[in-house]
């Protein structure tokens, strides 16, 4: 006698769960899994897009693209190292800055609403198309609006422009180590980039700070901890998991705007060397993911999870 198979309630709910994630799953399979495989395929071949009605043909080239990228290509290695280097400089700066700002914005003061609104503006205005134009007018702002016109018409630069070199010379004369100094000046010079890249991170940190139970602070106060001690012993450990979230977001965000991606894009769509572009994409992605994994691991080891 054949037993009639019936799904249990849990299985039924499980099936419904699959139904809910189905659209995403199809998309993921088509656009991500398939594309990743294709990218790897492209990197080992020479791809020719047939003119007119789409379609393409692959011609196996083995490791040639990889060898070319590392041995012969003019700027790939430099671009890759400088992109990674910039990332390693920027990421800690962005994290520190956004945590600091979140601490400030989390306090109660008059006009907090307006200040917060201003601080999240970079999230809103973060567009590549607008960026070039914005940076131009930033330059104008730094040197006074008049400077721009004056420079274009060939006159002397404005006195309103802020002279960074003057400050650097001053500190060098103080006898500060040049390495430290160059990091700091690089950071100061990048302040615009750092601020505009910190919007989302500030939001995340503010949310994190608000999720810390206030009883923690009460205990710290009763035990007689100073504000400084409270920060290091209470706030920072409890915010640490969100530092990881933020770091992942920052690194991915930074990478997707880096020069190496720009190079991959132009190699594909202006030089039409699709195979080489695939190589660039793969190598830079692997490097980024490696760095990401290492950093997350290192931080995770020293992280205390409250729950």
């Amino acid at each position: 006698m054949k037993e009639k198979r019936k799904l249990t309630l849990t299985q039924k709910r499980g099936l419904k769960g699959y139904l809910f994630i189905l659209p995403w799953f199809i998309g993921f399979a088509i656009f991500y899994v398939r594309s990743l495989i294709m990218t790897v395929e492209f990197s080992f071949a020479k791809l020719t897009v047939s003119p007119g009605a789409g379609g393409y043909s692959l011609e196996g080239k083995g490791l040639e693209n990889y060898l070319y990228a590392f041995r012969a290509h003019g700027s790939f290695k430099q671009t890759l190292t400088s992109s990674v280097g910039n990332m390693l400089i920027d990421v800690p700066l962005i994290l520190f800055f956004s945590l600091f700002m979140a601490l400030l914005l989390n306090q109660k003061f008059r006009g907090r609403g307006i200040v917060r609104a201003i601080f999240f503006l970079p999230v809103i205005l973060n567009s590549d198309a607008l960026k070039a134009a914005i940076s131009l007018s930033e330059a104008m702002m730094n040197g006074g609006i008049a400077t721009q016109a004056a420079e274009v018409s060939g006159a002397a630069s404005s006195v309103l422009a802020f002279d960074l070199d003057y400050l650097i010379n001053m500190f060098v004369n103080f006898g500060l180590p040049v390495k430290v100094l160059s990091y700091v000046t690089a950071a100061v010079g990048r302040i615009n980039d750092i601020i505009s890249a910190s919007g989302v991170q500030i939001i995340i940190f503010i949310a994190a700070l608000q999720s810390i139970p206030s009883s923690m602070y009460e205990v710290a106060r009763i035990e007689g901890a100073t504000a400084y001690e409270t920060f290091w012993k209470v706030t920072l450990p409890l915010v640490m998991p969100h530092v990881i979230t933020n770091m992942v977001y920052t690194i991915v965000d930074h990478f997707s705007r880096s020069d190496v991606v720009e190079l991959a894009y132009s190699t594909a769509f202006t030089e039409f060397n699709y195979g080489l572009s695939a190589v660039f994409s793969i190598i830079s992605t692997v490097v980024t993911l490696l760095i990401l994994a290492l950093l997350v691991r290192a931080i995770q080891k020293n992280t205390f999870y409250y729950n």
Partner: peptide, 23 residues
Amino acid sequence: CVVLMITIPMHTIMLPIYVTFKS
């Protein structure tokens, strides 16, 4: 896989997607 989707930049897979939609 969702987390992976966040971490993998679109740029890695732009070529296949371009080719796919082209044909």
